[in-house]
């Protein structure tokens, strides 16, 4: 709990990421950008989960790629991979509350108009 007496984590704080890693991440990000544009030009179809409830794959793929890119940026460019637990927890709590905002709002919209979503 106390962050004061943890020299091990302290050493990690000033981990310097090498330019090679940055270059590799840049390359990956550009490839993913190309990939998501390419995927958007293809009709990936849809999945009829139930009558009135359809999942289109194009947005799912696009958002999955966006999430991957975000993860790369957060982990490497923003050094979260090399940061202490507190930073990781902070990032996680941000996404958690973001999901709560969207998810709990959606519980209302989903159930207000069954089948229209």
């Amino acid at each position: 709990m106390s962050e004061q007496n943890q020299p091990k984590e302290h050493d990690q704080e000033h981990h310097i990421v090498s330019p090679v890693t940055y270059g590799a991440i840049l390359l990956a990000l550009l490839i993913f950008t190309g990939l998501t544009v390419w995927a958007s030009y293809i009709d990936l179809g849809a999945w009829q989960i139930a009558p009135g409830l359809t999942l289109f794959w194009n947005p799912v793929v696009a958002l999955a790629i966006a999430c991957t890119k975000m993860t790369l940026v957060v982990l490497f460019f923003m050094h979260v991979k090399y940061s202490r637990k507190l930073t990781k927890l902070t990032v996680a709590s941000g996404f958690f509350v973001f999901i709560v905002l969207i998810g709990m709002t959606m519980t209302d919209y989903f159930t207000r108009a069954w089948g229209r979503w």
Partner: peptide, 11 residues
């Protein structure tokens, strides 16, 4: 205010 009954139940 017009939220769904199900959401009202959960909340």
């Amino acid at each position: 205010m017009g939220i769904s009954n199900y959401a009202a139940l959960v909340f």
